[in-house]
Simulated scan of single mutants.
Amino acid sequence: MPELPEVETSRRGIAPYLLHQCVSDVIVRQRKLRWPIPETIAHLNEQVIDAVERRAKYLLLKTKAGVCIIHLGMSGSLRIVDKSTPVGKHDHVDWCLANGNVLRLCDPRRFGAVLWWELPLEVHPLLSKLGPEPLTDAFNAKRLYQCSRGRTLAVKQFIMDNAVVVGVGNIYANEALFHAGIHPKLSAGQIGLKRYEKLAWEIKAVLTEAIKQGGTTLRDFSKADGKPGYFKQELAVYGRDGLACPVCGCQIQSMRIGQRNTFYCPNCQKRR
């Protein structure tokens, strides 16, 4: 699944082509995505895109009439193509621009979403309860510490909770915990403020570096220009079960936490 860096990479890739452009038509070939694409998406027609933003893993195309909310789901990707480009089997939505370009959504598994919203974004059911963005000042060690008091939930699950902080998906939760030296199964409530200071810093650092390098190359993801991301070669523990830890040489181990694959170094991330 595309995580925050991949979604941010997509946003940066498409934004220069969409900003201040008029949408001439929205072509929906398949309405049955994670939620049915509403007929009201047609309200985007003849609207100028004033901003291309991201909230958590949602992309937001803002106009004066409302906001088109896009989620890439498990396998979705966005491309800027010419209107003459042949349509593929899994190309479900086209946002046609007056200048001849097309923003095209490809989603083989159809777990993505395309929605239309005309009220303030803060009251949208998918956005209203989200925590702060991880790369803003609103996310810090103090928030992690306060939100974790009395919690027995594993810290990996805790930092992946969108009510605590948005966008820390499985890959980057593994990486941040490794660099912070925190065992992923340690209870969130057992961690003190000082260790949360290290973890908050590492979450910001890992996500920043991933965005800088273009996201993580996975089977279902490549950037908006068709080129793959490059952060995968920098991963320290994720997907490296049985390989040597880059710090101490100990064998990386894996387990399941909250139904997600979890990778850690038993030496660098002792459960204490």
Score class of each variant (00 low, 15 high):
residue 224 A to P: 01
residue 103 L to G: 00
residue 11 R to F: 05
residue 262 T to L: 15
residue 39 E to M: 09
residue 118 E to L: 04
residue 174 N to S: 09
residue 245 C to V: 01
residue 149 R to G: 06
residue 66 G to T: 06
residue 46 E to K: 12
residue 82 D to I: 03
residue 267 N to S: 15
residue 110 R to C: 07
residue 131 G to N: 06
residue 7 V to L: 01
residue 179 H to N: 14
residue 156 K to A: 08
residue 253 Q to W: 13
residue 263 F to R: 08
residue 158 F to Y: 14
residue 94 D to M: 08
residue 115 L to S: 05
residue 120 P to C: 11
residue 166 V to C: 09
residue 235 L to I: 03
residue 194 K to M: 08
residue 229 G to Q: 07
residue 150 G to K: 14
residue 48 V to A: 09
residue 146 Q to K: 03
residue 132 P to F: 02
residue 103 L to P: 01
residue 231 F to D: 04
residue 19 L to C: 04
residue 49 I to W: 01
residue 16 P to D: 01
residue 270 K to D: 04
residue 137 D to L: 06
residue 100 G to W: 11
residue 132 P to K: 08
residue 167 G to C: 12
residue 260 R to S: 08
residue 165 V to P: 02
residue 224 A to S: 12
residue 34 R to S: 14
residue 152 T to Y: 13
residue 108 P to C: 13
residue 257 I to S: 11
residue 41 I to D: 11
residue 246 P to M: 00
residue 192 G to T: 08
residue 49 I to S: 00
residue 194 K to Q: 13
residue 24 S to F: 02
residue 215 G to L: 00
residue 254 S to G: 11
residue 96 C to T: 10
residue 38 P to E: 06
residue 242 G to T: 00
residue 39 E to S: 12
residue 190 Q to W: 06
residue 237 V to L: 04
residue 251 Q to V: 07
residue 38 P to N: 03
residue 188 A to N: 03
residue 45 N to E: 12
residue 141 A to L: 03
residue 202 E to Q: 15
residue 31 R to G: 15
